[in-house]
């Protein structure tokens, strides 16, 4: 079958399109980021300002806030395309659906995951994180946030056709986020105690590799169900 344009071209076109749309609606980038910062600042007010307590819970707070922020931003991943019919055109196009989906998820990660990684060290300073944990924090976020985008996109694709998908979404994807949370926070903990944390990173990397291959297929299948 004639596909018209090459895989690379289709991928980059869709990727650039999503980036351009997001730059025009800057709120989509900044609101999840602001939410992330707000959640992190609420915790010291809740658990008290003692530096020891804060540095103990800092990895957990930053990671839980990152999970919630990525879930919030994911909700609109397919919504606009679903409403204006672009999504159906994508499903009808001769290009393989997992490839197109991967372009969208990657664009989403660049727009929401990368700013989050850049802001995280700043928030870690506020939370008095152990000084030798910064490398681990950045590394786990760099490997972990793409997994959050990929797994979350499955849940979003399943609920995009539903009117009240928002609450359902958290029930569907938060259980799937648990392994990433556990390995990321224990890597940061280990680095705080001057222990090697590369095994934890290797496991998060393995999860990333696995979901990079399997998630686009699941997302594609879910989108076909949702747009039916």
């Amino acid at each position: 079958m004639n596909r018209g344009i090459s895989y690379t071209r289709a991928f980059t076109t869709l990727f650039m399109r999503d980036i351009k749309i997001a730059i025009r609606h800057r709120g989509d980038i900044f609101n999840p980021l602001l939410f992330f910062i707000m959640v992190v600042t609420l915790f010291p007010l809740g658990v008290g300002p003692e530096p020891q307590v804060l540095s103990r819970v800092a990895p957990g707070i930053i990671w839980v806030a990152a999970l919630l922020a990525s879930m919030l931003s994911l909700e609109r991943l397919f919504k606009a395309d679903y409403n204006d019919g672009t999504l159906e055109q994508m499903l009808l196009s001769p290009q393989p659906l997992p490839l197109l989906v991967l372009a969208k998820v990657l664009a989403h990660w660049v727009l929401t995951g990368v700013p989050l990684i850049l802001v995280a060290p700043l928030l870690a300073v506020l939370l008095n994180l152990e000084s030798n944990s910064y490398g681990a924090l950045m590394a786990t976020l760099a490997l972990g946030t793409p997994v959050l985008s990929l797994l979350g996109a499955i849940g979003v694709a399943l609920t995009v056709g539903l009117r009240k998908g928002g609450v359902l979404l958290s029930l569907l994807i938060l259980p799937l986020y648990i392994p990433v949370l556990i390995f990321a926070t224990s890597a940061i903990d280990a680095s705080g105690m001057n222990l090697p944390y590369t095994p934890h990173l290797a496991i998060i990397g393995a999860i990333l590799a696995g979901s990079l291959i399997l998630a686009p297929i699941a997302i594609g299948a879910s989108l076909r169900v949702s747009t039916n």
Binding site: L162, L176, A218, S222
Partner: peptide
């Protein structure tokens, strides 16, 4: 939450399969 139960079964089925891949990972990580 799906009105059409044929679609509902497919959507829930995808989630169940994704979950079953995740169960050993979750178990192991925990």
């Amino acid at each position: 939450s799906f009105e059409d139960k044929v679609l509902a079964a497919r959507a829930a089925g995808i989630l169940a399969i994704v979950g079953v891949i995740n169960v050993p990972i979750i178990k192991y990580s925990v």
